Deep mutational scan, measured.
Amino acid sequence: MTEYKLVVVGAGGVGKSALTIQLIQNHFVDEYDPTIEDSYRKQVVIDGETCLLDILDTAGQEEYSAMRDQYMRTGEGFLCVFAINNTKSFEDIHHYREQIKRVKDSEDVPMVLVGNKCDLPSRTVDTKQAQDLARSYGIPFIETSAKTRQGVDDAFYTLVREIRKHKEKMSKDGKKKKKKSKTKCVIM
């Protein structure tokens, strides 16, 4: 069974824990209790493949930012979460993405942009803004509501699919490099 290491990042209060708990335990946590770091595991079937999701729910508070490099190193894919009623959390996505790329030393890291709290009427981040940002990053965008469960499975499952595509691409690139290195030079 394939294991996928997913990391949920975003500013404090955007609903990272609520999304994760909704996926794992099928219930909505409405009281806000700032996370330092929590880890969850769940076995699911995605596109006919049974897999184990190892999900790291991270601290959004700035005082825990020193811990970010460590979990970013171990993560295979990242859910970059903002709240649709919090423009600052949307603007912060850029910083999370840049930090992930720096730590992973790669421009090509599996990510999904997630606009959470889409059940709320007080939207300050337009869907088109988020779609445009995701398009500019070359990553999928999904709106979710941890409260109603809308888009929750889709967000995590899409990230797994992005990781699969990335692994497939990397193995193809690896095979191309191996083929090239088999060419021999004969000096007579």
Rank of each mutant, 00 (worst) to 15 (best):
N86Y: 02
T74Y: 13
G77A: 14
E107F: 09
L79D: 00
I84E: 15
G115C: 10
C80N: 02
E98F: 01
F82C: 14
K117W: 15
V103W: 14
C118M: 11
F82V: 13
E76D: 15
K104M: 13
H94L: 15
D69F: 01
D69Y: 04
F82S: 14
T124A: 12
S122M: 09
F78S: 01
R68W: 02
V81R: 00
H95A: 14
C80F: 15
M111P: 00
M72C: 08
G75L: 03
M72R: 07
N116F: 00
G115R: 03
D69S: 07
G115D: 03
L120S: 08
F78E: 01
V109E: 01
G115T: 06
C80V: 13
R102C: 10
E76S: 09
K101H: 05
F82E: 02
G77S: 02
C118L: 09
F90D: 02
I100H: 02
D108T: 04
I100F: 07
M111V: 04
E76L: 11
V114I: 12
G77W: 02
L113N: 01
E107R: 07
V112G: 00
D119K: 03
N86F: 01
R73L: 08
E98D: 06
Y71D: 12
E63V: 03
V125F: 09
C80W: 04
K104W: 13
V114Y: 01
S65D: 06
P121A: 13
D108E: 10
C118R: 06
E107Y: 10
P110V: 03
R97C: 15
K101L: 15
E107M: 12
L113P: 00
V125L: 10
S65W: 04
N116S: 14
R73C: 09
A83F: 01
E76F: 07
F82Q: 03
K88A: 13
K117L: 15
M72H: 07
E107K: 06
V109I: 13
P110G: 01
Q70I: 04
I84P: 15
K101T: 11
T74Q: 10
L113S: 02
F78Q: 00
S65V: 07
C80Q: 03
Q70A: 11
V81M: 11
G115I: 14
C118K: 07
S106A: 07
P121R: 09
Q70E: 08
K104L: 09
G75M: 05
H94R: 13
E76I: 14
D69K: 05
A66G: 13
D105G: 15
I100S: 02
V109K: 03
R97G: 05
T74W: 14
F78C: 02
Y64E: 04
D69L: 02
D119C: 05
G75T: 08
G75H: 09
Y71M: 07
G115K: 03
E98C: 04
L113R: 00
G75F: 10
M111H: 01
L79I: 14
C118A: 10
N116M: 15
C80E: 02
C80M: 12
G75S: 08
C80D: 01
S89L: 02
V81I: 07
K117V: 15
P110T: 03
T74R: 08
R123Q: 13
G115S: 09
L113Q: 01
I84Y: 15
D69V: 01
Y64K: 03
T124Q: 12
E76A: 12
C118S: 11
F78W: 03
G77Q: 00
G77Y: 05
M67R: 08
E63L: 03
D69G: 07
V109S: 03
D108R: 07
M72G: 08
V112W: 01
D105N: 11
L79E: 00
K88C: 10
V125Q: 13
M67T: 05
N86E: 08
P110I: 02
E107C: 15
C118Q: 06
V125T: 11
V81N: 03
M72Y: 08
L79M: 06
K104D: 04
M67F: 05
V103R: 05
I84V: 14
M67E: 05
C80L: 14
C80Y: 09
D105C: 09
I84R: 12
V103C: 14
V81A: 05
N116W: 00
